[in-house]
Design a protein around this nucleic acid. Structure first.
Lengths: 224, 224
DNA sequence: GGAAAAGTTGACCATTCGGTCAGTCCCGGT
DNA sequence: ACCGGGACTGACCGAATGGTCAACTTTTCC
């Protein structure tokens, strides 16, 4: 909940309302953002059509452009929201406590994220595959710092013999990519497994195995 | 090397030539396919522009449409070529021999693939994230069969206590996604690690760690 | 050498796209 | 009742897009 950078309607008034509704068309804004996330996540920025976003939101195209002056503005807002969701979920990895439990929790948290917001995960993946033209700065800024910081924790664990000696950054890549697979490659997994009730079945089945495999792969031990 | 389904020029004559050049414009065809792979892998089908593909191939747009009647035809050819590359690389996992070595080889083979053909990997990822509208049949057909078949091998290993008890399909997902990360998420990895000579540094550094982590994660043992 | 086939090109067309805009609707305040 | 402004809409515009085509050049084959 942040990231506004546009035009006429925004979080400007909001003070003068009766007190109950938080902004009149604020609902519309979120409707549009939700629809845009969906379309952008499937087609990418260039492939997405404003009118399709509008249709998906159930409103005319003109109305979309009323809230977001340009397609690019809308994309920025959407992807920045997705990114902040992603970064928030990175959260804290408990420095103390035992590594195994810490990572187990972290993995589960990320797994839940891509289960609950698969479109967000896909949009993020799309952006990165496209070369991250929009969020590159965020990646080499905030994310990089986060990795360096948390990487130190990994290094400490490794020195204590509680974690396999893997370049911390690559350990993160491995965790991230594995947890996101089930959202990003849903189509492939669905095709291969022939799953019907995808959301429920797969996640429940896979979660356990995957977490264990990761913990094992990273050689995480319980602090004694 | 197959997959032609278009228009006038194709692998029609080829017999009558002097013997040296295998078709005159056959080079062009491949030029175009290479360029198309690049553009499609960054923008996806809808986002890619025929003219951009043409520019990337260094020829006028009209010439591209001469070899491939429509954008869709070109995309089909390109992605089917990528898919066959992918499926070929699946190759055989040695049924006998020790599991650890078998998977180690398999992972290394896939890792090499995404190092040598990162655009192919990205294009495949894009297609799947978009919902695999074109290759869905292939995935639920050939790929699914392959997984079921090779999954049996995994199950046998598991019964012999040579592999952790993970749903075989998910074991494959894990292997695939980890090996593809370095191609698909290159932008992110580059941003986070600040790597300059990406292609060389990262792959050399990561390969070892990743392979070990996977082998460990899948609980693979050497047959004794 | 010459004609047919294959290859190449820029001009051109219909459609679609992102974005603008004038005008309408709906609301609370006075 | 009336006003003013935010919310909304469909018609519209210029630019870009996928695709066609007729003219032209090159290659192939007898």
């Amino acid at each position: 909940m942040e990231a506004s950078q546009d035009h006429h309607p925004s979080t400007s008034s909001r003070i003068g309302t009766t007190g109950s509704s938080t902004g009149v068309g604020e609902r519309q804004r979120e409707r549009i953002i939700r629809a845009a996330t969906l379309v952008f996540s499937r087609k990418g920025y260039d492939g997405a059509r404003v009118e399709e976003i509008a249709r998906s939101a159930g409103i005319p195209k003109g109305n979309v452009l009323y809230y977001f002056k340009t397609k690019k503005t809308l994309y920025r807002v959407v992807i920045e929201q997705v990114l902040s969701l992603w970064l928030d979920a990175l959260g804290n990895i408990a420095v103390d406590g035992n590594p195994e439990e810490a990572i187990r929790q972290y993995v589960n948290r990320k797994l839940a994220l891509s289960r609950n917001y698969p479109e967000a995960s896909r949009l993020f993946a799309m952006e990165v595959i496209s070369g991250a033209p929009v969020i590159n700065d965020h990646l080499s800024g905030e994310l990089r710092l986060w990795v360096e910081e948390k990487g130190e924790v990994f290094r400490k664990w490794q020195q204590d013999g509680l974690m396999a000696k893997i370049d911390p950054a690559h350990a993160f890549f491995m965790i991230w990519v594995v947890t996101q697979t089930y959202a990003d490659f849903e189509a492939q997994i669905q095709a291969v497994t022939g799953a019907k009730g995808y959301a429920q079945e797969i996640y429940t089945d896979a979660t356990g195995d995957v977490v264990e495999a990761l913990v094992r792969g990273l050689g995480l031990k319980r602090d004694t």
